[in-house]
Design a protein around this nucleic acid. Sequence first.
DNA 1: GTCTATAGCCAGATAGAC
DNA 2: GTCTATCTGGCTATAGAC
Lengths: 204, 204
Amino acid sequence: MVKVDKSTEKTILEAAKRVFHERGLAGARMQQIADEAGINKALLHYYFRSKDQLFKAVFAAALATVIPQINEIFDADLPLFEKIRTFADRYTILLMQNPYLPGFIIQEINNNPNFANDYLTSEIRPNPEKLLVQIRKEAEAGNIIAVNPLQLVISLLGLCVFPFIAAEMIKGVTGVTSEQFNRLMEERRKYVPEFVINAIKPRP
Amino acid sequence: MVKVDKSTEKTILEAAKRVFHERGLAGARMQQIADEAGINKALLHYYFRSKDQLFKAVFAAALATVIPQINEIFDADLPLFEKIRTFADRYTILLMQNPYLPGFIIQEINNNPNFANDYLTSEIRPNPEKLLVQIRKEAEAGNIIAVNPLQLVISLLGLCVFPFIAAEMIKGVTGVTSEQFNRLMEERRKYVPEFVINAIKPRP
DNA sequence: GTCTATAGCCAGATAGAC
DNA sequence: GTCTATCTGGCTATAGAC
């Protein structure tokens, strides 16, 4: 990476992010991070002490870019259908800008059963509670069909996140290029919320 | 692992499957596989030559347990709604029996950009073509609303697979136990297909 | 086929000069 | 703060006895 006028620590974090996102904790190499940052290995240790701590910093940053945004929409003061539209739209945009993020997070959670204790603080922690209550109330009022609120939230998340997790598989199987894939995700910003709303809107 | 009367090769493959599924290629250790198989490292190399080849065998087996089943339903001679119900039901059962499988496959695909060439043969390759055509025809006939067929297939897959990929996250955040999670997936066998059918059924 | 012992390498971490 | 050089441990892989 070309040296630019920016703190070494930031440069390291950005290089580490790229490498960890691509290869995971176990697969990443400190040498590659150093190369991408345009520095040497010793300096990585000078700034972050160990590979593990560097990883923790990158992982925490990943959670911090995605979880607060999710919670903000979960807690927004919006009618349910508007909330679903806003969530799908904003979350898809976020993922288009950070396509490696979901796979990275999921992968490392599965490899570190203790992640909840290690990383989830009171601020950085997905909190669907308000949305779950909102769904339950709308169902009781008959504004949507009867659903298990947790199933609905999982479904909404899955519809947004899954294509990014499975991107390489989708490309490999269907033959769509990265550009076509992006257009597909662009289309999904509107497709997903209408899909979900249709699924839960009562029929006359 | 307790020694039982079964071929060493099979014992190794089962142990390797457990370890690779949990830790991925880079994170797995040949020593751990040997321990779980109740043998020593040298024997692993005697049977599979290298870690890489052992991994390839496990990965190919993983694809072989899931892809043919998917294709069978994709290609079945069923009306669309029945196909959706069958797919969600059977695929969810399959994943409940192999919960590590999706995460394992996704993780290694993302770490090996060349996987399509390495692993996808003419038999072992997801083939949604017939289902895509079927969806297009149903939409043209007005039996379902207008949709991009690929979006619909991705959605159906995501609704089934995502909860398993995100299982640890879901448990960590909501506090549901593994047993409660299984009940949730059990419920999903019916929930997902009705959700999807509702989403695409035309309104009067 | 299965084992013990060990070779050989690679990656994380540190020492110490500048 | 940043570098080069090096240590150290751990891991894959092999040699060779049984």
